[in-house]
């Protein structure tokens, strides 16, 4: 189950501005999906380790050797808004932690 308030909170976290209609529909759809998913809550998983990788690799490392960077005009080519030196954005009005 997920309620309207939670949907709005999650949408903010995800930087999605949902329309009112979307919020309503999303609340219903996500709830039914979550109800189905929550069946895994019935499993006994106490002693089970989580799997985040299916492959058993470790220490895949790259030698510290430089590779060619992109020419600046190529780096900026796909930008929706740029000046000659960089990617332009509206200045942040709030600062969040890095």
């Amino acid at each position: 189950m997920i309620d309207r308030e939670q949907v709005l909170h999650v949408a903010r976290l995800a930087r999605l501005r949902l329309t009112d209609a979307e919020v309503g529909r999303m609340t219903g759809e996500l709830s039914s999906i979550l109800d189905h998913i929550e069946k895994i809550g019935e499993l006994d998983l106490e002693e089970v380790a989580p799997t985040s990788h299916v492959i058993e690799l470790e220490n895949v490392l790259r030698a510290d050797e430089p590779r060619e960077s992109l020419p600046r005009e190529v780096a900026l080519r796909e930008a929706p808004d740029s000046d000659a030196t960089g990617f332009r954005v509206p200045s942040p009005s709030t600062v969040e932690e890095a």
Partner: peptide
């Protein structure tokens, strides 16, 4: 929990 189900 989903990751543990994955293990199973």
């Amino acid at each position: 929990r989903a990751q543990r189900v994955r293990t199973k």
